[in-house]
Simulated assay, not measured.
Amino acid sequence: MALTDAQMADVRRYMGYALTGTTMPITNDQDVVYVQFGMVTMSLHHRLTTLSASEEAVLINTYLAPLNSMEQDIIGIRGNLDTAQASVWTHNALEQSDRDRLFDSWRRRMCQFIGAAPGLGLGLGGGIRVVRG
């Protein structure tokens, strides 16, 4: 069983890489992301299309499914942004930053599982660097 196009797009997106659209077809030999395994360099596309069945199952069940849920949870907090307290319930003012941090932590774990560095959308090297000049 192979990853669907939507799953491939989600992997790239969660890894922090920008979309390519139809301007540059992504193939085993042409990609914007390359991974290094010892002396072997391959495109992310090649890496994702040559996973074993068990690796693919881990990628889908341990990373993609939970990341989809976490992303929806982040979007879902918008319903509580206008309420600080209701009866005994008190809004967690740090909910979005807590969820963002958890989400990004799992995105980085998926990058490690795949063996590729996080993209710019996840911060260079998995973090954000500020330089003063």
Rank of each mutant, 00 (worst) to 15 (best):
L3W: 03
L3D: 04
T4F: 06
D5A: 09
D5K: 10
D5C: 01
Q7T: 02
M8V: 13
M8I: 15
A9C: 04
V11D: 01
R12C: 02
R12N: 03
Y14M: 09
M15A: 15
M15K: 02
M15T: 00
G16N: 01
L19K: 15
T20Y: 07
T22Q: 13
I26R: 15
D29I: 00
D29M: 04
D29P: 04
V32Q: 07
V32E: 09
V33R: 00
V33C: 02
V33N: 02
Y34R: 14
Y34D: 02
V35M: 11
Q36V: 14
Q36E: 15
F37C: 07
G38R: 05
M39A: 15
V40L: 13
T41V: 13
T41L: 07
M42V: 11
M42F: 01
M42T: 12
L44D: 00
L44C: 00
H45Q: 14
H45M: 06
H45D: 11
L48I: 12
L51I: 00
A53S: 15
E56H: 06
V58F: 11
V58M: 12
V58A: 14
L59S: 05
L59P: 02
I60D: 07
I60T: 12
N61I: 02
N61Y: 03
T62H: 03
T62F: 05
T62R: 04
T62C: 10
A65F: 05
A65S: 12
A65N: 14
L67P: 10
N68S: 06
M70F: 08
E71K: 15
E71D: 11
Q72I: 01
Q72H: 05
D73A: 15
D73T: 14
I74L: 09
I75D: 07
I75H: 09
G76E: 02
I77M: 05
R78D: 08
R78M: 06
D82P: 00
T83M: 13
T83Y: 11
Q85H: 05
V88A: 10
W89C: 04
W89A: 13
W89V: 14
T90D: 06
N92I: 09
A93W: 03
A93G: 08
L94S: 14
Q96E: 14
S97N: 08
D98A: 08
D98I: 06
R99P: 01
R99M: 13
D100L: 12
D100Y: 09
L102N: 12
L102G: 12
F103A: 01
F103M: 08
D104C: 13
S105N: 12
W106R: 01
R107K: 11
R107C: 15
R108F: 10
M110K: 08
C111Y: 00
Q112D: 14
G115W: 03
A117F: 10
P118G: 03
G119A: 08
G119Y: 04
G119K: 06
L120E: 12
L120F: 10
G121P: 06
G123T: 09
G123I: 04
G125A: 00
G126K: 01
G127C: 12
G127T: 13
G127Y: 11
I128T: 13
R129P: 00
R129F: 04
V131W: 01
V131R: 02
V131T: 05
R132C: 03
R132A: 04
